[in-house]
Each structure stands twice: as C-alpha cells, then as structure tokens.
C-alpha cells in the first residue's frame, strides 16, 4: 500500500500529515480520538538529523500532556551508513529517538508502529521496534541483513543459506520470519478499513513486553522467554 492510501484509509475524515525529506509528521482523527503520526517514508535511511527531528516531534507530543496514541509509519532502509554519522554519534541519536518513544509509552500514550515498506538494522530498532505494538501490512519487507551480505559474512553460498532459511525463521529476512520470532503483533488486511483495525488494536490492553512469549508460542524463538524469566527468578531468589 502507498502512504497516501494508508493515510486515506486510516483517516477517512481527513488528516494533517505531511512528509518533508521523507520524514513523516502530523496528526489525524479516528473515531474522535486524535492520533499523532510520525515516521519515515520512501525507503530512506535514518541518520543523525532525521532521528533528532523525529525525536523532537515525539517530545512535543509528550510535552503537551495529552494521552493520544502515537502512530509510527515505517518504510525505511537501515541506519545511514556514513563516516560523518558515526563521527557525530549516530548511536546516541538513534537511541535518543527510541527512548522518546519508550517514554511516550510509559507516560500513557499507546505507541503503535505500522510497517508498510522496508526497514532494517538500526533504523528498525530505533523506530518500529521501539513502539509498544508493531503491526505490518502485507508486502512489508523488514530485514536485519539481506541474504547476499549474509552470505559474504558467513562465507556460505547463498543457495545454502536459502535452503537453511526453509527450516527456520531465525535468520532470514522477511515479514513472516519476523512475525514468527514475535516482533510483529499482527498483519493488517489492506482491503478493510485501516481506521477500524487501528481502533480494534487500541482496544486491546498491552501492558508489558510480550514479544518473547509471542515468539515462543509461534515457534520462532523457543528459548528467549523462558531464559529471561529464569534469570529474573534466580536474581530475585539470590
């Protein structure tokens, strides 16, 4: 789905969402609830400036004290890979954005990520994976690393990697694989009203990070949930 179609389906009564240099910001109203919108468009990479601009929007939302939900729309590539970004401390800028989203969540805003295109690596972590609930549209294509690069690093032929990817969701790119490991809450139906699907999601109560349990029940991450729980228990009993 294209961004304009997504916004039209989310906000049938109109919206004030703008895209400047592939950074999304604004708001719209669904069923009388004001929804704040930020995001990345055009499969663009996320660098220091972009991360700070988005973080600034989130801080402005939280500063106002209203408890409206924050929708993060994502069609990005990875973090911007450059000497300049690293020189300036890209890790601090990306993390700052993630922290503002996590703070918004803690202050009572529902933070919902909608992955409608690509996303990868550091940009994925700083945006989509920093929301309280991440949903996707069919055709979204998240990737930690593409298979050709992975083939280079692991020194395995790409055919071998593809064969291994048939047996496990744990390493290969793709929406289905990410969903099985628990990162994606659900995949929306593009043929139905996105506003209604958004509203239904808002009605669900999500209080803590349940992604590891989700990954366990879907079979993509067999050990994470139980290991984290055991460490927590051992720490509490010691």
């Amino acid at each position: 789905m294209e961004l304009a179609d997504i916004l039209a389906s989310l906000f049938p009564g109109g919206h004030e969402v703008a895209v400047t240099d592939n950074l999304i910001s604004g708001s719209g109203i669904i069923n009388a609830i004001k929804v704040h919108v930020i995001g990345i468009a055009g499969q663009s990479p996320l660098g220091c400036e972009g991360a700070l601009i988005l973080a600034g929007h989130v801080l402005e939302i939280t500063r106002k004290g209203s408890a409206g939900p924050v929708l993060v729309l994502i069609d990005s590539s990875s973090q911007r890979m450059s000497r300049r970004d690293e020189l300036l401390g890209l890790s601090e800028c990306l993390t700052h954005l993630a922290k503002t989203l996590l703070l918004a969540g803690a202050q009572g805003h529902r933070t919902i990520g909608l992955l409608y295109g690509g996303s990868a690596a550091g940009a994925f972590i700083a945006t989509a994976l920093a929301t309280g609930t991440l949903v996707a549209l069919p055709g979204a294509h998240p990737a930690v690393m593409d298979l050709p690069s992975m083939a280079r690093v692991t020194k395995l032929p790409i055919e071998v990697l593809k064969a291994k990817a048939e047996k496990t969701p744990v390493f290969a790119p793709g929406l289905e694989n990410l969903a099985q490991t628990g990162a994606i809450h659900s995949v929306w139906n593009p043929d139905q009203s996105l506003a209604e699907q958004f509203f239904a999601l808002l009605a669900e109560q999500i209080s803590h990070d349940a992604r590891d349990r989700l990954g366990e029940s879907r079979g993509g991450r067999p050990k994470a949930a139980s290991i984290a729980e055991r460490v927590e228990k051992e720490a509490s009993h010691a």
Binding site: A130, M150, A172, D209, R211
Partner: peptide
C-alpha cells in the same frame, strides 16, 4: 552487534533489552 546466524532473534533481543533497560 547482532549474531547473523540468528539475526531476527538477535534484533528483537536488542529491542527487548532496550525496553527493559529504559524501564
């Protein structure tokens, strides 16, 4: 960074760690 042989699990782990750390 993320272990490529289990890239998806590692990527989500980073996000879970960040959330637990911030909380």
């Amino acid at each position: 960074g993320v272990r490529l042989q289990e890239a998806n699990a590692g990527e989500i782990a980073i996000a879970e760690i960040m959330r637990a750390l911030v909380e």
